[in-house]
Design a binder for these strands. Structure first.
Lengths: 208, 208
DNA sequence: ACCTTTTCTGACCAAAAGGTCAATTTATGT
DNA sequence: ACATAAATTGACCTTTTGGTCAGAAAAGGT
């Protein structure tokens, strides 16, 4: 093995292929993606792709599952058993930050959902569902304690999710609206501020 | 002509084809769509499609342009030179209502943007841009008059757009989150209420 | 009735794309 | 050094697909 890295050949190539696949799938969608293009991007001959993956769908599904796990990691450090103000503000920032740093994965996933989640497994869906449900009682608790207005936690999460995703998934529209060619880090900053301020002001009960 | 309708054959078939194409494109995306499937959905032989349209791209582009015009119509009756409360609340409801009634077009457009707006013409983009810009000074005026908090109008529009689109574009996620199989009209109602209340409470200055 | 224009459609084609395979090369353990 | 397993790859196959076309059938006008 004359490679510098100690990494096993298999692991390295799988990683290369997945990375290339994310780039292509996110730009072209599942149907628009050509295995030949993934191969070219990864710098491998097409047949070699099929040595590691048995089909286009297998690559795609692997990416989706890995991506959902990534979201968990990104959000797991958020401890919502804190002040609603802090917890929500941290959530918004973390989510927006994740969208900014992983726009390709974000778009890939968005495309998958828009087209009916053809390859999203039952397990993946259940996993997402249960993650949401974990946070619902916390918000309900805040409402019971009179710390936040009585809103549907589910709709609240949908609102937060939609706004934070938008800047990555529809970057093109957001950039157009802001008169930019491409979004900058400061645009994400301003987005976080605006969302946080508006939502929190609207949500927190006057007494706080 | 032994058809009952007075409609010209050409107009009728073009309409049929476009309708079928919207259904298929929205589910499969541009690359995933097969002309044969559009033909089958429209109840016409494939070759007949090519009598009316010269390529797949032509059908697709026609739909996109028509769709953007539709948005204008849906939103033109909103007169934002009213109270911010009324204007924004009407905007949210109209936009959400449009999303609910035209989910296919909505998703078709979302897919197009996510994949880099490959077929969105310069004119279409400019048109969208200028529509946004038309509303910016109004919000700025509200801020100057101290009626709403000082927020970036652009980010505000992005927030409104993202939330109202979400229920159509990512209906699957929203339905999962709400524990439904498919969104009902009442879910859209509740969404409108939640969004309106939260955003307005956060936006309006305390004195109002 | 006759001519012109529009519409219709089965058959066909070339290119593209997912996937296969057998033969070869490279790594690994002993 | 040798044997076995892992990795590589060009050539190839099959199916799919966007698009074409020539001739037939309706429609429309006079």
């Amino acid at each position: 093995m004359d490679e510098k890295t100690e990494e096993k050949v298999r692991a390295r190539n799988v990683r290369r292929i997945v990375k290339a696949a994310i780039a292509v799938f996110s730009r072209k969608g599942f149907d628009g993606t050509r295995i030949a293009e993934i191969a070219a991007t990864a710098g491998l001959p097409k047949a070699n792709i099929y040595y590691y993956f048995s089909s286009k769908e297998e690559i795609y599904s692997a990416i989706i599952t890995q991506l959902i796990a990534g979201w968990d990691d990104a959000l797991s450090h958020i401890r919502p058993d804190r002040e609603p103000e802090e917890a929500l503000s941290a959530y918004i920032r973390a989510k927006l930050d994740y969208s900014r740093r992983h726009p390709e994965e974000s778009r890939l996933f968005a495309g998958e959902i828009i087209q009916g989640a053809r390859f999203l497994t039952r397990r993946d869906r259940a996993h997402m569902r249960s993650t949401t449900e974990k946070y619902v009682p916390i918000v309900d608790g805040w409402i019971r304690d009179g710390r936040v207005q009585a809103v549907s936690p589910h709709h609240l999460f949908i609102m937060l999710w939609s706004m934070t995703q938008f800047y990555a998934d529809f970057e093109l529209l957001a950039a157009d609206a802001l008169g930019r060619k491409k979004l900058k880090a400061e645009d994400f900053e301003e987005a976080a501020d605006t969302i946080t301020r508006t939502i929190l002001d609207g949500l927190l009960t006057p007494s706080h």
